[in-house]
Simulated assay, not measured.
Amino acid sequence: MSAIPQPRQRFEPWADPAAKPYIRIVNVTKSFGGFTAVDNISLDIYQKEFFALLGPSGCGKTTLLRMLAGFEIPTSGRIELDGVDMSTVPPYERPVNMMFQSYALFPHMTVEKNIAFGLHQDRVPKAEITRRVDEVLNLVQLTKFAKRKPHQLSGGQRQRVALARSLVKKPKMLLLDEPLGALDKKLREQTQFELMNIQEEVGITFVIVTHDQEEAMTVSSRIAVMDHGRIVQVATPSEIYEFPNSRYVSEFIGDVNMFEGRVIETTQTFTVIHSEEAGCEIYVDRGVSALKGAAAWVALRPEKFDVSLTPPPDQTRNCIAGKVWDIGYLGNLSVYHVRLPSGKKVTATQANRTRLKERPITWDDQVYLSWNPDSGVVLMA
């Protein structure tokens, strides 16, 4: 009889005031000559987290990862791991391993010898090496490939060898630098879930660097969004997506429609924005700290819209009308690009619950896009 799978436990140490951070980055700055790559960053990461550093190229995420690994020394500030200051500890003395995008496997060695290499360097007893290598081979499901060379493996298999080699030394923290970047889309999506399951099983703190928003949203417990050497928001994937704290975050994470306007009313429980480009008032069921008349933007995700050929009863609030000027069919959903009378172009998505031939909306149709009061996010200038 197979075992009954146990429900996953709620994991939110950052929400517990009594929880002690496992990794503490305190006022860390890294400069190269006159260029500041990391600018006075402070960040707490907790034990067993799968934490993502997300941002565009040049935002400082890889430099921060390299400082965690010990390949770069902070210009100022300190980095603590499990209560010990690691700021000046060399890489080979840190209980940390790093998995690179290139995998850096030895082509002349078999899978098992690649994995065992670091243990041999540390003079671990032979019996212990065999036991630990067998253990991680089983973990990454590569036992039957142990005698193969890297060139005899697929890209996904080589990625798992690199992961096994990083895990076999049982580090306190594993750093992953764009680890899935060399894989094709379908394999990358499959490997993301494998990576999550392995991290949960071994219980090691993972810190991943990626510019792929979907990857960060899938694998991580929390995300730090970075821009120009600074962290602009740290939150769970759902919080980052649903409640971005700035226009930068809302536009960087996923697709979004941004409506400019002015605050005409706000209380503790709601805000009303008048937007000329939307052609209506936008009602949001959350208050903001703003004066009447203040400039503001409302962020609306494409999937929040209800797309209809018939107008809703109230068109004065949370309803815009326009003409369909382009349609994208993606199988599971359709993407509608709608041009408003103001000239603004809006993107709306709808799940394809019926066959495409049964869908009534087509090019040049007049459509109405409406949304719920809890769908929008008000962002101040």
Rank of each mutant, 00 (worst) to 15 (best):
S246R: 05
S166W: 08
N318L: 04
T236M: 12
P179A: 10
G279S: 03
V249R: 00
L187Y: 07
L187I: 15
I115Y: 07
K126E: 14
N138G: 15
N97L: 06
R66E: 04
L187E: 07
E281T: 06
K304M: 15
E239F: 10
D177S: 11
E281M: 11
E242G: 02
R353T: 14
M217C: 05
L309Y: 11
A296Y: 08
L300Q: 02
A19T: 00
A69Q: 01
Y46K: 03
V234P: 14
P90K: 02
Y336S: 00
T63C: 04
S42H: 09
W371C: 03
R148P: 02
P7A: 13
N114C: 05
M196L: 15
P360V: 10
D16I: 03
N138A: 15
E93F: 08
T143S: 15
A348L: 14
V219Q: 03
T271L: 04
D255W: 12
P17E: 10
F259S: 02
P311E: 12
L175G: 02
D285H: 10
P13Y: 06
T269V: 14
G343Y: 14
P91C: 05
K113G: 01
S308L: 06
N40F: 05
F50R: 01
C280N: 08
E277Q: 13
E80W: 05
D364R: 13
F193W: 13
P341D: 11
L53H: 00
I282T: 05
T36N: 14
C59Y: 02
G156V: 04
L68V: 08
R78D: 09
V140A: 09
V378W: 04
E201Y: 08
L333C: 09
Q350F: 11
V207M: 03
M258G: 05
P74C: 05
R8E: 15
E128D: 14
S42V: 08
D85G: 06
A104M: 11
